[in-house]
Amino acid sequence: MSAMISISGLQKSYKNEQVLNDVNLTLSAGQILGLVGPNGAGKTTCLQALLGLISYDGNIDVLGYNPRKNREKMLADVAYIADVAVLPKWIKVSQALTYMQGVHPNFNRQKAEAFLAKTNIPATAKVKTLSKGMVTQLHLALILAVDAKILILDEPTLGLDILTRRQFYTHLLEDFYDKDKCIIVTTHQIEEIEHILTDVAFIREGKIVLNQSVDDIRIRFKLVAVDNEHFELAKTYNPLFTTSMMGITSMLFDNAAPEVLATLGKVSSPTLADIFVGVMTQETHL
C-alpha cells in the first residue's frame, strides 16, 4: 500500500531551539495515528510543517504534494482542525457554509447541513454566540463535509466536556473515516482515543521515540502486578516504569519474555496511557 503521508528527516528550529529533530513518519490509507507527547514536545509544529504552514528542513510528501510548494492544491484533499477556538467570532453559521462552498472544491454543503440539523445550532447564529461545544460541532460539520483523503486534528477536543469529546470521536468514525482515508490526531486525552487508533507515535523533545501499530504495542509492552516476593527479581528485568498503589506494585516491561513475566505476577495489557507514562519517564530513548 503506497504511503499517503511520508515524512523523513524533518527538522525545525526556532532561533537556537531545536523543536523537531529527525522526525520520520509514514502513514497509509486506513491508518489512524495518534501523535502523543507532552506539552512542547513538537506535536503542533510537526502538524504545521505537514500542512506547509511553516518552513522546515527535511522531506515531506503528502499525497504526492510538497506542502510548502503546493499547499493550496494539497489542502483540497487534506482537512485540518487546528483548535476548536479558531473559527472567526464574527461569522454566521450560514456564512461559514457559504464560504466553504465557495472556496473548497470538495465541500458538500448538504452534508454539512445534514450534520448541523442533528445539533441545535441555528443557521443564523454567529460563532461568538455559540458555546465551545457548539463551535466544535460546527467546525466538525464543516470539516467532515469535505471529501478529504487525510484528516489532521490538533488537540481537537481541548477544553470540551466528556460528552462533547465522545460525540466528536463518534462522528469522526461514523461520518468521516473509511479504509481509503487516514487520520492524524494529537491529544492529551490518549485514553479517550485509544480504541480508535490503529497506530501511535510518541514524541519527546522533538524526536519520535516510539512509532508502532497499536496491536504491536500491545504485544510488546506488558504490565505486571508484581508479587511482593518477586519484587527484587522483577527490578532486574529493567521495567520501564514502576508504580505502587494500595499495596500493589505494577511494573511496565518492554519486550520481556511472556513466560518470565508470568512468574513475576499477574500479567495484563497496559493502556496506551500507561505506556506513554512509562516511555516518557524513562531515562534513555527506546
Binding site: 482537512a79 472567526p88 472556496v103
Partner: peptide, 17 residues
Amino acid sequence: DERRDLSVYFWRSLPVS
C-alpha cells in the same frame, strides 16, 4: 484581527492561496 482571534489557522487550513 485574524491573528489575534487565531482564525488565521482556520483560513489557512483551506485551499486558498
